[in-house]
Simulated scan of single mutants.
Amino acid sequence: MNERQRRFADEFIKLGNATQAAINAGYSEKYAGANADKLLKNTKLRAYIDEQLSELHKSNIMDAEEALSILSDIARGKRDEEVLMMNPVSGKVERHTKKADNATVIKAVTEILKRYPTAKQSEKLELELAKLKEQLNIGKDEGDSITIVDSWGG
């Protein structure tokens, strides 16, 4: 892939418009109008574009650990919330920060608990697994195994 092709790919990622990306990369308007779609079919260019888009998505999308960290901070009162309030005297809107209220903390804790089964839920899963094994006639000594994937990612 040459430098102009790389510039085309980078411009295409930014704009989403192949013709304009080709023009911005230094191709003539005539060439860009007729051949921009061909540039996108170039396997090396396509692989580069796909790789760059994948990296952008990875850096922009929150993973589960980050989400749980934020929820934990909210539940522990470590994250302040910004609220807008009208000052009745001046008539101006003022920004204030406050700790999360109880409803917000409860929601955060509930979301965290959805991801971690309690002892009671674990017992229920074990009972369901035992019943399933019984229904499938899986004996303890038969050497058969079964894998159960639960909703918590286990």
Results as ranks from 00 to 15, higher is better:
residue 28 S to E: 06
residue 87 N to H: 08
residue 123 E to D: 13
residue 15 L to C: 01
residue 28 S to H: 07
residue 117 P to R: 06
residue 39 L to G: 05
residue 48 Y to L: 06
residue 130 A to L: 11
residue 17 N to F: 15
residue 4 R to I: 10
residue 10 D to S: 07
residue 129 L to F: 07
residue 104 T to Y: 12
residue 60 N to I: 12
residue 44 K to C: 00
residue 32 A to C: 00
residue 94 E to D: 08
residue 125 L to I: 15
residue 58 K to A: 10
residue 141 D to H: 04
residue 130 A to D: 04
residue 84 L to M: 07
residue 135 Q to T: 15
residue 140 K to D: 11
residue 42 N to M: 05
residue 85 M to A: 12
residue 104 T to R: 14
residue 150 D to M: 06
residue 19 T to W: 00
residue 18 A to D: 06
residue 54 S to Y: 10
residue 93 V to E: 06
residue 7 R to G: 03
residue 94 E to Q: 08
residue 140 K to S: 05
residue 69 S to W: 01
residue 127 L to T: 14
residue 144 D to Q: 10
residue 29 E to N: 06
residue 99 K to Q: 09
residue 80 D to V: 13
residue 48 Y to A: 04
residue 42 N to Y: 00
residue 127 L to H: 08
residue 149 V to M: 00
residue 123 E to N: 11
residue 133 K to H: 08
residue 145 S to Q: 04
residue 70 I to K: 11
residue 80 D to L: 13
residue 37 D to H: 02
residue 105 V to T: 06
residue 126 E to M: 12
residue 145 S to R: 11
residue 107 K to Y: 06
residue 11 E to S: 10
residue 47 A to R: 12
residue 124 K to F: 11
residue 81 E to R: 07
residue 149 V to S: 03
residue 56 L to I: 15
residue 44 K to N: 12
residue 83 V to F: 02
residue 149 V to P: 00
residue 141 D to L: 06
residue 47 A to H: 09
residue 141 D to P: 02
residue 17 N to R: 09
residue 117 P to K: 05
residue 3 E to Q: 14
residue 17 N to H: 12
residue 18 A to V: 13
residue 67 A to F: 00
residue 53 L to V: 15
residue 54 S to I: 14
residue 79 R to I: 13
residue 102 N to T: 13
residue 52 Q to F: 08
residue 93 V to I: 15
residue 24 N to I: 03
residue 102 N to H: 14
residue 76 R to M: 10
residue 74 I to T: 11
residue 132 L to F: 09
residue 14 K to R: 12
residue 29 E to F: 05
residue 73 D to I: 07
residue 65 E to K: 11
residue 115 R to N: 07
residue 16 G to F: 07
residue 115 R to L: 05
residue 121 Q to F: 03
residue 149 V to Q: 00
residue 43 T to C: 01
residue 35 N to K: 11
residue 135 Q to N: 14
residue 73 D to G: 10
residue 56 L to N: 06
residue 11 E to R: 09
residue 69 S to K: 04
residue 136 L to K: 02
residue 47 A to G: 08
residue 92 K to L: 12
residue 56 L to Y: 09
residue 52 Q to D: 00
residue 39 L to E: 02
residue 13 I to M: 12
residue 13 I to S: 00
residue 93 V to A: 05
residue 1 M to V: 14
residue 140 K to T: 11
residue 131 K to I: 10
residue 96 H to E: 13
residue 151 S to R: 05
residue 96 H to G: 04
residue 22 A to I: 07
residue 132 L to E: 04
residue 125 L to S: 10
residue 103 A to D: 15
residue 1 M to I: 15
residue 70 I to F: 01
residue 89 V to L: 04
residue 22 A to R: 02
residue 8 F to L: 01
residue 10 D to C: 04
residue 135 Q to V: 15
residue 64 A to K: 13
residue 33 G to D: 07
residue 124 K to V: 13
residue 66 E to W: 05
residue 102 N to K: 15
residue 1 M to E: 04
residue 100 A to Y: 14
residue 111 E to C: 09
residue 144 D to T: 07
residue 59 S to D: 00
residue 100 A to W: 15
residue 113 L to F: 11
residue 135 Q to F: 11
residue 63 D to I: 12
residue 7 R to Y: 10
residue 106 I to V: 14
residue 72 S to H: 08
residue 42 N to P: 13
residue 130 A to C: 05
residue 75 A to S: 14
residue 25 A to H: 06
